[in-house]
Design a protein around this nucleic acid. Sequence first.
DNA 1: CAGCCCATCTGGTCCAACCAGATCAGCCGA
DNA 2: TCGGCTGATCTGGTTGGACCAGATGGGCTG
Lengths: 232, 232
Amino acid sequence: MTEKNLLPELAAHLYASSSADTGRTPSERELAEHFSVSRGQVRETLAVLEAMRIVERRAKSGIFLTTRTASVEALALFAKAGLPLDPIQIYEAVELRKIHEIKAAELASLRATEENFARLREILQRSEQRLAAGEPLAGEDRDFHLEIVRATQNTVFYRVCSVYYAMSERRLPIYFSDPERGARSHGEHLQIYDALQRRDANLAQALMSMHLQGVESYWKGLIGDAPGSPGG
Amino acid sequence: MTEKNLLPELAAHLYASSSADTGRTPSERELAEHFSVSRGQVRETLAVLEAMRIVERRAKSGIFLTTRTASVEALALFAKAGLPLDPIQIYEAVELRKIHEIKAAELASLRATEENFARLREILQRSEQRLAAGEPLAGEDRDFHLEIVRATQNTVFYRVCSVYYAMSERRLPIYFSDPERGARSHGEHLQIYDALQRRDANLAQALMSMHLQGVESYWKGLIGDAPGSPGG
DNA sequence: CAGCCCATCTGGTCCAACCAGATCAGCCGA
DNA sequence: TCGGCTGATCTGGTTGGACCAGATGGGCTG
């Protein structure tokens, strides 16, 4: 059956079957039986979930959820498992994405190699074909944005950013189901590409900022307004 | 013996005993024997290392290092284990830290609560006492910077940033062993605090930028110059 | 010298125990 | 009736052994 990736399923199950007040989850033995796997298998997965700060294992006591302090990787995992994400954490992650990618646009305009540009062109062509065929965009949006981060030549940066996309992947089909939205997004991508190629850091930055503003308002519309910015 | 945290030690050992060309590490059974623990124990740890992208486990073949794509968490772990970090990755992480914290200063100036300010004051007082006593700064610098990130009220942001400090912690004593450096750093912290309290986003940003410039040059001096920014 | 084949090694998985501390229901005494 | 003690039970932590199937590599064969 679940020959692979116990992790998302286990995470989902923990979330669903934990005690509402204490956050206590079923025991390792129960989980093993529920998924028809060995206890060792469960423990291995729990070790990862603990490293991700999703779960806390207390010796001789139990396993407890610690979702409030979940890491970015954890958020991505939640999204994969189809878990009900905390709206506030989604908003926070979107804000962080904005911080990252505006700066990424600036750095990319200074550092992008011909290799990066070639990949960007290839992605833009794929987008164009899809739009021409009347199909919605799929991974092209993610690819475009991640390629820009990669163009900063900062691999640590790249890895941190990748996780946001795993997170929002499930919702992208909804976002791009509106063809007009897809076309506008593609147009903005083209402008950004031009700015990068002209090595115009300020323009690239500004365009990316505007582009992401649209994404942010979309998310805000879905999940409500920003968290407690002290009135003013 | 190693009753706790096999992880850093195992990571260090993998790094030290892996094949230089293929990156292949000793087998699970060998590792278990080397650390005098069970194979299950080793597997649990390897699962975490794999989730961190430090290691790749290939069924029926072996375990291989994948350090080049290590995540931020992985870097922090490496630092804890005293591993020889890839200088380029250190530089990349420092650059990312700069990206984060300058923006954090701006957001914090807009969103910091009285609670945040109180904690910052407390941290500054501690710093002052240490300096007055002629002691070098210890965790105060980290606390100050992290508190500012926390003041953005973005918990995802906060978690991402925390790992940088775990990373540089081992080197801070060196950095602050120079009393003049500690005093100057503390002075800059005071200025930043004032800017935050006056809710002056531009000033806070600028001061933080200058402050981190010093840190960056220090690191650059230690590890060499920036990576391949295409000439110009 | 090239190519095939089998012993060996490896990760993947499972099972059956044992340990010691946390937990808590139930008993005992006040 | 209620508070405090206690012992059975449950839990995570850890170990050892076992089996599987595929990857690997060295030696044999042609």
